[in-house]
Nucleic acid binder design. Structure first.
Lengths: 347, 347
DNA sequence: TTGAAAGCGATACCAA
DNA sequence: TTGGTATCGCTTTCAA
């Protein structure tokens, strides 16, 4: 704990009987140093347990090899896949990914952006396109590549890859409509901007079909969990007992809905059909298997990371493509299978 | 992207017509600077969009205000709660938490420790006590507080908070045994050291009861997911059709087991009882609700963070307590309810 | 209350 | 291939 505990470059140099610069080289470009010195230096490094001070090196070289990533949550599997993809690209390229979880809070996000910028990352990846004006301002003048992911609404700051959540919400409704459902409910937890867009898509599509959504929307201000799916379904059933299908803003709520149906003895999909969002791993394991809207989390992460590398390596040159809509796909499974009459359900 | 894009302390100083030191003070100890200067400086900071360079400040002050945290996974909710607790303590205290996910890989962990140390954190929090010899060596000579969490086996490096996974595994078996179960299976995915200890506890307790585990252990080398729970149960059922209870190494497998039972028309708990591990949110929502071993994730995170603060603020003085066993508790729920005859099940 | 000078630990650039 | 020197942006003495 006392001062001067860790060995520095100078310590290594002294012990190896060479100059600090040479040690620096031996570590970063071993082939620029004669074998003899390299060996002596390696030995000194080992003996002294030398670990380069990243802060000093970053300061001197103005290359931090840091990429800042802001995620709104780590609770569900969504951002895990996404982060994994980012790291799989960036780490081998010598970059360190600095992840900050802002828990769906705009204020935390603002602070996180400032904090990250204090580390002088070489690029930033943020989720969504709904940053506060202050955040947008910071990012715009950050002087580095910025990738917004997960959503493609509006005008991007810089690079952008995502999908149209409004369209995804509408598509979920369409899927159910085409199976004969008319009383289609929507369940949504503490709604982030993307969940709100899915909700908007639901509303639009229902309206397009001339269907009322009265009493069919269950919303909670709390962050979602599985149990909430059941609670929200309860609310809907109290108002619209003959609801025939449920589209949830995420898979946790879908799972909770499924359980609540089991609890009440409602058959899925015969009495109630369910469509989730994200296509997490349990969807294919559930009984019945859960229909869900699948999104390209890994692809978004990979593309963001690869684009950043391209820009950094091309010394700032923009890639050909700066905006990608990766779309989505509905994985139709048991929870929306057309088991019987494809018309009205439940009596 | 060009050089000299971001404003520096000197830029602010120039614009405010004061010396750099004064700006530094105005930012860190506003009350040490006269109001007039403070205002001028604040204005310059705003105008120039100045964000302090954390690397430079850390280098100069030898205080990084960074705490490094290594987690083995982000896939499930376990480490989310844990990290949340750590941040809730450390962030308000002015520390930045640097999280590295090593995906249950010892090699990645070794690299992560080195990477983290390159940033000169003021403390480190690592999950588990099973680091490689090289990792242990690095941590031991890191010259900073190190907290090992999640497990209490063996001799800790420094501070330690966790639970006895072997005991937890044994307790799960005991719980089932006391409900009358004798053919108790254990399902385990790619086993991290703690899961292996739970497995060992299972074996020990089964042996203590004089019960054979032949054909009752389902293991997979792959990382766990919900579907795997079903696959592993299949394997067990093929060998021991009259298995009456299943203890899984985590809740994902428990959920998969539950689904597989539903699929096969096996009643839970009447035909097969289930005990999971971690007590994730879906346990209370499932039908039937899932019995699970609950662990104090948040408490572990909080204690780790608070102990670190205590040490740092006490300039290195060790706290009274350096080792805590937070224990565990079995949340008995529907999946192990004694619904009928508390003796043998299934025929 | 304010400022000048030295230094944190490394790298870049230019010489040798 | 090796080394000297200035410098990165900030903080820490110590003086004024």
């Amino acid at each position: 704990m006392n001062k001067k505990q860790r060995a520095t470059l100078a310590d290594v140099a002294r012990r190896a009987g060479v100059s600090p610069v040479t040690v620096s080289r031996a570590i970063r470009h071993p082939d620029m140093v004669s074998e003899e010195l390299r060996e002596r230096i390696d030995e000194a490094v080992k003996k002294l347990n030398y670990i380069p001070n990243h802060l000093a090196s970053a300061l001197a070289s103005t290359r931090t090899h840091i990429v800042g990533v802001i995620v709104p949550s780590l609770t569900n599997g969504v951002f895990d896949d996404y982060l994994g993809a980012i790291q799989d690209v960036l780490n081998p390229a010598g970059f360190q990914v600095l992840v900050l979880n802002v828990r769906y809070s705009e204020i935390e996000e603002e602070k996180a952006i400032q904090t990250l910028m204090g580390y002088h990352p070489e690029a930033m990846i943020v989720a969504g396109v709904d940053q506060t004006p202050r955040s947008l301002d910071l990012l715009r003048h950050a002087g580095m590549p910025v990738v917004q992911t997960m959503d493609v609404s509006g005008a991007p700051i810089d690079l952008n890859i995502g999908l149209d959540h409004e369209a995804a919400g509408a598509a979920a409704v369409r899927h159910l409509y085409e199976l004969g459902h008319r009383k289609i409910a929507h369940l949504t937890a503490r709604a982030d901007p993307r969940a709100r867009r899915r909700h908007a898509g639901y509303q639009r599509q229902m309206a397009a079909y001339g269907l009322s959504t009265e009493g069919l929307v269950g919303a909670s201000p709390r962050p979602s969990d599985v149990a909430m799916g059941g609670e929200l379904l309860d609310e809907i059933l109290a108002q619209v007992p003959d609801v025939s299908a449920v589209f949830t803003c995420n898979d946790d709520l879908a799972l909770g809905t499924l359980f609540e149906c089991q609890r009440r003895g409602l058959r899925v999909p015969d009495d109630i059909a369910i469509v989730g969002f994200n296509d997490l791993d349990f969807c294919v394991a559930a009984v019945p298997t859960l229909t869900s809207v699948s999104i390209e989390r890994q692809q978004m992460g990979r593309w963001a990371a690869e684009s950043i590398l391209e820009i950094i390596r091309g010394s700032g040159k923009r890639p050909k493509q700066t905006r990608v809509d990766v779309g989505f796909s509905i994985k139709a499974r048991g929870s929306t299978a057309a088991t019987r009459k494809p018309a009205r359900k439940k009596g």
